[in-house]
Write a protein that binds this DNA or RNA. Structure first.
Lengths: 215, 215
DNA sequence: CGAATTATTATACGCTTGAATAATTTTCGT
DNA sequence: ACGAAAATTATTCAAGCGTATAATAATTCG
């Protein structure tokens, strides 16, 4: 049997490849199935190389978790930032980004599900989770406060907190529903449900779901 | 070394003990740490006995998943049924039951997190998930339709669907938030947020979060 | 161009896992 | 009371795990 051919890559490139292979394996086989050997095969290297780039498998998985979470949050925040319009438009872009691919996506949920169980067990996972949660929640609260001000309101701190908790929860829950059972929802249905629900929660007139006999 | 003392239990009792031990281990150590040996130790038996009650470890974990999910759904439905009042009261009881212990609870979330990653990988998990989801969603949709009728509305099928998706998402998301970071919320805060948000989504007057300068 | 260094492969090790089997104790029908 | 059947323990096994180490190929640099 001949020896496997060498392919030498730059450090950042190889680290990225290894993280990508880790995510592939977790999405496809679950955390249990994401073994060092499986990940190495997927990355096209031999197992020993992993230890050359990461002190342990755990550290590599932590890096993969960090990247996944930051990617999701960044996608939503970028969508809000690049929506150059009024505060309402920015908030809506943020919500839509969270409830459409690639954030709402079966693969993303598989990754998240594989990771979330570690949050309470591994302090590193706990720290990554907490930081990401705070970034997300802060972004949402800012968008919300801007929107309320734009409507001419002077929201109290209590209202901002309560409404951002509620909107955050709504986004999270719809994200799970949509990612777990994507086939049960039209492509834009969840985003539309979220937008209407959020604006109803904030006291705006609803957009088209009135029934025939309101009273 | 002397032999371990025998303790003979009835079949249903022992199966229940093994499932309970499985859940304990998953909650405490994660799915990875819930090994046959660890579970057996927790249950106070030796490993071989597990195979006497379950054809494989997988089947035992599936039984544990089934029990956990059915328990959560049943708790909420029972709360709604035993609230002998108008439709609004029943819907509120359903929501509150979902967002207070033992449904909203760090341990319950740990269990759910341990399981959810299997839903897409193991068809048995997929079937359990789907069945439970449909039961939950049907119960919610019935409660919602009753409530809307009680308000004098004649809700369209589309509205019922959209609103129940939204409420389901809100419950799920707040459940996760509350279970992941119970220390960040007052004991009844999430339930209150949910109740106010749901009624706002349905077009009812809000209950006390108006700010100082509406309009 | 050659030596030192680094990246990569290949192999080996100790441990844990789920499962299978054998041995032992209890229960129960007759 | 006894023997068959069932429940439980104890032991064993093969496979797979993460990791460590040794061998080899590529790169770097004086």
């Amino acid at each position: 049997m001949s020896r496997r051919a060498f392919h030498r890559a730059s450090e950042t490139e190889r680290r990225q490849d290894l993280i990508a292979a880790t995510l592939d394996c977790i999405a496809e086989f679950g955390v249990q199935g994401a073994t060092v050997r499986q990940i190495a095969t997927r990355a096209g290297v031999t197992g020993g190389l992993i230890r050359h780039y990461f002190a342990s498998k755990d550290q590599m998985v932590q890096a993969a978790y960090r990247e996944t979470m930051m990617g999701m949050t960044k996608a939503a925040i970028d969508a809000a930032d690049s929506a150059r319009g009024d505060a309402r438009t920015r908030l809506r872009s943020f919500i839509v980004a969270n409830l459409t691919p690639p954030v709402t996506d079966p693969r993303t949920l598989s990754l998240w599900a594989g990771f979330i169980g570690h949050v309470r067990l591994d302090p590193v996972f706990g720290a990554i989770h907490k930081e990401n949660y705070l970034v997300f929640r802060q972004a949402l609260e800012t968008l919300l406060a801007d929107f309320l001000k734009e409507m001419g309101r002077v929201p109290s701190a209590a209202e901002c907190r309560a409404q951002s908790i509620a909107i955050n929860g709504l986004i999270d829950g719809l994200w799970i529903e949509g990612s777990l059972a994507a086939d049960m929802f039209d492509e834009t249905e969840l985003a539309q449900v979220a937008l209407r629900s959020v604006e109803a929660m904030l006291g705006l007139p609803t957009g088209g779901l009135e029934d025939t006999n309101k009273g």
